[in-house]
Amino acid sequence: MKHVDTPTRPGEATSEIPDVEVTLNVNGDPYRMRLDSRVTLLDALRDHLGLTGAKKGCDQGACGACTVLVDGKRIVSCLALAAQYDGREITTLEGLTDDGEPHPLQKAFARHDAFQCGYCTPGQIMSAVSLQAEGRAGTDADICEFMSGNICRCGAYPNIRAAIRDVVSEANDASV
């Protein structure tokens, strides 16, 4: 168990806002934390655990850059308070590689140039991972529709679809 404390100055009440104790299971490791109760799941991951893969693009749940998996399902972590996720299993982009070997979607995103600035990429990849699990990657129309919660301002959408298609068809080939 790793302990992470919110920074406080000695001799000063941290806040009128009560702190909360929370254990987040992130990428397989438990982290016990004492947090300002206003801290979002995204900020807990980024500012307190140093997992900066998930990005903050709007802080309003509208761009998808902060997408992570909770118990296998994708959520926008900027609209989630860390305190609500005590004991839950959280997967971030950093947890996607398997013993240093990138996930097939990570490789496909590189191959298809499915990003430019790369800022939305962690969220896109996490959404794409989830899409497969949701069974929504079967058709182009589904990929378009169910990847539409992840904004790419650089405009890499066609290449993002190509990367997902590529991995889906590889998976299908493998299962035949």
């Binding site: 980024r46 900066t52 996607l96 990570q106 590189a110 800022y119």
Partner: peptide
């Protein structure tokens, strides 16, 4: 050729200004 920074950008290892502390 694939972007030389693709391995960083696809794994969360590319650090943008707000990733620094």
């Amino acid at each position: 050729v694939d972007r030389v920074d693709a391995p960083l950008k696809t794994t969360g290892a590319a650090h943008y200004p707000n990733d620094y502390t």
